[in-house]
């Protein structure tokens, strides 16, 4: 994996990307850039979404039926593809959150063991 950056927070986040995207969309439909920006702002720029992997991830989610797309208008007044969370997506998010909780608790136990 030559393109994979070494140990950055982004690499750790790789498995959680879906959950982040779905969670962000619970606030309402938005386009790709807005989603990325929202995550960056929420985490105080601690988590940087790799723009190159954002869109394939969104397309994957759409194919699985967790999000659906519609045409809307962006802040620039241009046509923009908006992603909206579906009921299936909401259910998936719940599952991912539960998994994440379990996972992070486990990892913490190891990392912070005295």
């Amino acid at each position: 994996m030559p393109t994979e950056p070494s140990k950055t927070p982004n690499a750790l986040l790789h498995g959680a990307l879906d959950a982040l995207l779905l969670k962000t969309l619970t606030r309402g439909p938005s386009h790709g850039y807005a989603i990325a920006r929202s995550i960056e702002e929420t985490t105080g720029e601690a988590v940087q979404i790799e723009d190159g992997s954002l869109y394939p991830a969104l397309y994957r989610l759409e194919r699985k039926g967790w999000v659906e797309a519609e045409w809307g208008t962006s802040e620039l007044g241009r046509r923009a593809k908006l992603y909206r969370l579906t009921d299936a997506g909401r259910a998936q998010l719940a599952t991912e959150l539960a998994t994440w909780k379990k996972f992070s608790a486990g990892v913490s136990k190891v990392l912070f063991a005295s």
Binding site: H31, G32, Y33, A36, R37, D51, L54, Y55, S74, E75, L76, R78, R79, A80, K81
Partner: peptide
């Protein structure tokens, strides 16, 4: 269109 918009806004 999606990528254009993204790059533009970034």
């Amino acid at each position: 269109e999606e990528i254009d918009l993204h790059v533009e806004m970034r």
